[in-house]
Amino acid sequence: MSTETTLPGADFYLFETLLPAEEREILDRARVFLREEVKPLVNEYWAKGEFPPVLIEKFRRSGLLALSYEGYGEPKTATSKLLSGMLAMEMSRVDASVATFFGVHNGLAFYSIYAGGDQEQRDRWLPAMAAMDKIGAFALTEPLGGSDVSGGMRTTAKRDGDTWVLNGAKRWIGNATFADYVVVWARDEDDNHVKGFVVEKGTPGFVPVKIEGKVALRIVENAEITLTDVRVSEDNRLQNVNSFRDVAEILRLTRGGVSWEALGTMIGAYEHALAYAKQRQQFGRPIAKFQLVQDLLVKCLGNITASWGMVAQLSRLQDQGVFREDQASLAKAYVTSRMREVVGWCREILGGNGIVLEYEVARYFTDSEALYSYEGTREMNTLIVGKSITGQSAFV
């Protein structure tokens, strides 16, 4: 056996062994699928700034859909949140845009209907989403509202008999350019509470326009959406959502997924930087033999290992039903901060090649900036945790 195959990988503390054998098999299958079917597409479409439609068909055939939802997808019984997290990690390890596309569809959109809809709505929409015959999107952020959208949502909903009329705008909505179902959050003009609506593709007055010029998550097709007298039926209002508190519950459960994506981004950058260091020759020897390069690699591995421990325990708490918002916020703030450090060190190891797409690390380096900000900035998540540990709110 060669020395190469005996070297430890990014899972330095063997966190994958926390999964039962059957779930490790699913993870292994996902890893092969992502490496063989997805990775060859990534750089081409990242450079184009386009989403590859063939990716949907590839995921459809993969058998990796809706694994963590009881009664939907395969297997029919829900798998653990720990496995769901590691699957998000594996996707982001290949490409953060792919993980984001999947997280928006299978996490934010799917879970909004799963948790916020009644049984009739779940039966109406989720089987097609679980099979990826229909794609979902999640429209919360607005052009003038991000962190303050809970109290300052400008998109409105007005009841008119058996229909609702939606007006306003949303921004940074992933998948929205091609999604079949978009979960739109709007403030009810009558009671001032936030409610959720499933707006179906082609509804008059609903216009998504792709945001151009992004330097991060370029495969994700984010859109700015305008809603002009968009009429949706009462049957398309999520029946179990009555205030922003219900929206916050959905975000609480999906925020942990972003932490896993940040971990995967770290791992992907680290693995490429490590491989580069072992083959790049300077002064007659590989740069992996230099002390300063080894120092950077070890600091990367330390951040990866600490973050993996945090998010693994977070998912286990979720599986046990004792998972809290402040725990999700601490993970999002901490892991994305460590990710920023890792991708910077990896770019440093590659020198000038660290900004060239061909060498992969540049993609992780730029994509990390989006993960650092979305689903709650570091500052907002810090204030959530700060309130939890001090009992004092610093929100203004």
Rank of each mutant, 00 (worst) to 15 (best):
V104F: 13
D133P: 04
K134Y: 03
I267L: 05
R122Q: 07
V94A: 04
Q392I: 13
K289E: 13
T336V: 07
V343D: 00
I26T: 06
A78V: 02
T77L: 09
L41S: 00
N106C: 05
G352P: 02
T265C: 15
P208N: 05
T377G: 07
S393P: 05
I389S: 04
R154L: 14
A78K: 01
V207P: 02
Q282E: 09
L238I: 06
G213D: 10
N192G: 04
L87I: 12
R237F: 04
T100C: 10
L292D: 09
G391W: 05
G196D: 04
E348N: 02
S307M: 02
S368K: 07
G352H: 03
F51D: 05
M91H: 12
Y69I: 00
I219D: 06
L82N: 02
L108Q: 11
A157I: 12
K387W: 01
K48Y: 08
G71C: 06
G264Q: 11
G302N: 06
R187M: 08
K289V: 10
G103K: 05
E234K: 12
L83S: 05
Q320C: 00
E379T: 14
A262N: 12
G71V: 01
Q392T: 13
A248C: 14
E375N: 15
Y374G: 08
F290C: 09
Q239C: 09
D367V: 00
T336D: 03
A273I: 01
G213N: 08
E189T: 14
N381P: 10
V335C: 07
V230P: 13
A216K: 05
V298W: 07
Q327Y: 09
D123A: 09
P143W: 15
G196Q: 07
V342Y: 00
K170F: 07
W172P: 00
E23M: 09
L357W: 13
R24V: 03
F323G: 11
P204N: 11
G146M: 06
V343E: 00
D28N: 10
S112Q: 09
I250Y: 07
D295I: 10
A216W: 08
V32R: 15
L317A: 03
A78E: 06
Y181W: 12
A66T: 02
F12W: 12
D191Q: 15
I219F: 02
S150M: 14
